[in-house]
Amino acid sequence: MRILKYLFLLLFLFLIGMSVFVSTQKGDYDVTRSKVIKNPRITVFNYINDYRNWETFCSWIKNDSSYQFTYPELSMGQGASCSWTSDSSDGNLKTILVKQNESISQKMVSNEETSEMFWTFKDTIGGTKVTWRSKGKLDFKSKVAAFFHGGISSVVGDTYEKSLENLNKTLDYEINTYSIKVNGIVNRPGGFYLKQFLHCKEKDVDRNIKILVSRMEHFFDKNKLNSTGKPFIIYHKYDRANDDIGFSVCMPVRDSINIMPGSDIESGKTASYTSLKTTLIGDYSHTQTAWKKALAYISKNHLERNKSGQIIEVYAVGRNDVKNPSKWVTEIYIPVYPKEDAKLVVDKPIDSLVVATPPTETVAPKK
Score class of each variant (00 low, 15 high):
T114M: 12
N63M: 11
Y273C: 07
A146I: 03
K210H: 10
P261L: 05
G79Y: 09
R2G: 02
W328M: 01
N46V: 06
I96N: 03
L225T: 14
W119F: 15
S66K: 02
S66W: 09
S326R: 13
D243S: 08
G17W: 09
Y71N: 04
K210Q: 09
A145N: 09
Y193W: 05
W119G: 07
N258D: 09
V98T: 09
M117N: 13
I61S: 01
V205Q: 02
L344A: 05
L276W: 00
C200E: 06
D50V: 08
K169G: 10
V322D: 13
R240Q: 14
S256G: 01
G126R: 04
Y333H: 12
M260I: 14
H236R: 08
I334H: 03
K339Y: 08
S352P: 00
V336P: 00
S272G: 15
L198K: 14
K122H: 03
S103M: 09
N306K: 14
W328D: 03
K99P: 00
A146K: 01
R240G: 00
L97D: 09
N226E: 13
V182E: 00
K210F: 15
V314L: 12
K343V: 15
M108R: 06
R254E: 14
I298Y: 02
S326T: 01
P325K: 04
L344C: 05
A296K: 11
I334K: 07
K26C: 00
A290V: 09
I48R: 00
K195V: 05
I257M: 08
L344G: 05
W54N: 01
S66V: 06
F69W: 08
F118A: 11
V249P: 03
D283C: 11
T360P: 01
F118Q: 10
S75M: 00
G191E: 03
T362Y: 04
D239C: 01
